[in-house]
Amino acid sequence: MPTQKTLYKALQKINAVYVLIFKTTIRFKKDVKNIAPILDAEHSVIKWNVDRSDVDHILRVESFNNNINHIIKLMNTAGYDCEELTD
């Protein structure tokens, strides 16, 4: 049985992991704390982080699904603006 880590790496290699990038209003540490339980509870979310040093307070999510709208909805419900950042 492959471990979860090796499985994840293999999936990443074949681009089966989606990297979703959002511009948000998740500004402060307390905001990150607010959203942590919400994203941690999502089964499709492998890992996530917020780059608070960026002007757009980037939320970066690695997910098994391309569930952009779902993530946006979750963030909006938690009280934050969130929009997908596209190329």
Partner: peptide, 15 residues
């Protein structure tokens, strides 16, 4: 000459 979104595909954050 790439979009900020592209940078975050490759890197988690600035650090």
């Amino acid at each position: 000459k790439v979009s900020p979104a592209t940078l975050y595909i490759y890197f988690k954050d600035k650090e």
